[in-house]
Amino acid sequence: MAHQVLHKGAHARYVVSFQKDKKGYEYVASEYLRLSGIYWGTTALMLLTTKKEEDKEKDNNNNPTTQFVDYTKGLSADEVVADVLECRNADGGFASAPGHDSHLLYTLSAVQVLCNYDRLHKELSEEQRRETAKWVASLQSEEDGSFKGDKWGEVDTRFSYCASSCLRLLGFGPELGDIIDVEKAVSFVLSCRNFDEGFGARPGDETHAGQVFCCVGALALLDALDRVDADRLAWWLCERQTEGGGLNGRPQKKQDVCYTWWVLSSLSMLGRLHWVDRTALVAFILSCQDPEEGGISDRPDDEVDVFHTFFGIAGLSLLKYPGLSEVNAKYAMPQRVIEKMGLA
């Protein structure tokens, strides 16, 4: 396990074959989150692909490799984009898969994928983007500023994040206040703050690292990150690192690769990424790879999936693991995309 390296090629193959095996049970049975799957998979491929001039990938003998591989080529951009557009509903929102209902989770994934491929403006007319933004904004509660996931009313700070990110990506800069109540959105997120300075899904709900990411991310996107006690929150986050080097999502829980992302991105936004042990964490993530078949699992020797593969790679990117593209902590998208969009 010592000196493991990231098996980039294997992971890219895994992501591509998962995406292509449209008759496989895993694919068929994950219809309810398909669009998020596309986002995890394609973003993972983008993070695995460095720009030519940045390519400092090393081989097993620590020599820089000259070979540059564009892993995103494994999937046809046109096909991916077509898959995404097929999920768009008349209300302006996106569903997990064709025939399903619009939901904020998949609307964000759709917008993220379209931005990643730089196709947002090409594929959606200004009118259509406006519709999507309005649909997103319509999910905000006038009363407390919270967001619902869809018209049926599940309130969760995850949706505060999704809405904020989605609207920023759709181009709402200073004019964000024209379509949602920003102050209320912020105060709802803050009302979910707990005794440990962390955040839960709703007021009174327990702090959870995934939820912390959503709330810190939402506050960052809404320019209100100064309203948290960064030292206290970041301390709770760095206490997520366990004996095994991996991170857990709550005290006394097991380490799990996906928390690499939720915890690290939050620490990064709070400017305290150096509060975790980078070496131990990298070793843990690498130990969760399937070196032959590709893919990353929650813990060593468990079944891999696209979700953990993406969060493992994105976490390694935040940890500056060599040979990966930089990821943006706030948007969970390639930094080059965010920069190009002028959102950095």
Binding site: D256, D290, E292, E293, S297, D298, R299, D301, D302, E303, V304, D305, F307, H308
Partner: peptide
């Protein structure tokens, strides 16, 4: 796939 043991190659295929 939280907490599900990885299959051996022989079992998987």
């Amino acid at each position: 796939m939280h907490g599900q043991k990885r299959l051996t190659k022989e079992a998987r295929y």
